[in-house]
Design a protein around this nucleic acid. Structure first.
Length: 151
DNA sequence: CTTCCTTTGAAGCCT
DNA sequence: AGGCTTCAAAGGAAG
């Protein structure tokens, strides 16, 4: 269990109020197989656009990051400096290759951290689901080609 | 100013 | 049940 602080938030835009409004934290979370060393970071604010038509009083709750996203965030600066590339799309692709080159043991650390972040996120926002963010970004572009080419 | 690009993974949507 | 789509990060590029 972790104390909720207004950790990495800017300008106090997001506030995590964990007042005792209900029996939300009565049950302890399932014990993780391997206790995460560091506290999963709180969801950060996004520079991308806010949901349309939603009141600003309601903070935008972001999806928890998956294992690769954690790896990406950790390696982005290094790879960018090493390869001398600043374009994120190119950097991400390079990090993707590094990710695929990792052993399962090396990847395991990120999967565990991502799992811990998901649990923490679920505690922060018990009723939240990924569907809440559907249609909140982009213009609902059809990207069938991307899904098809990955198969 | 807003969306795209680009990656993998999670998860909801839709058939 | 399984394929498809969106969104997580992120910053230059494109519109």
């Amino acid at each position: 269990m972790r104390t909720l602080v207004n950790g990495g938030q800017r300008s106090g835009q997001l506030s995590y109020r964990l007042v005792a409004v209900g029996p939300v934290f009565v049950e302890p979370p399932p014990p993780p197989p391997a206790a995460p060393a560091a506290a999963p970071p709180l969801p950060t604010t996004s520079r991308k656009r806010r949901p349309d038509g939603q009141p600003a009083s309601q903070p935008y709750i972001r999806k928890p990051r998956n294992a690769f996203m954690l790896f990406l965030k950790e390696q982005r600066h290094k790879v960018s400096a090493e390869k001398g590339i600043r374009n994120s799309a190119a950097v991400n692709a390079a990090v993707g290759q590094k990710w695929n080159a990792l052993s399962k043991e090396e990847q395991a650390r990120y999967y565990e951290e991502a799992e811990a972040e998901r649990r923490f996120h679920a505690q922060l926002y018990p009723g939240w689901s990924t569907a809440d963010n559907y249609g909140q970004k982009r213009k609902r572009v059809r990207r069938r080609a991307a899904a098809a080419s990955r198969g």
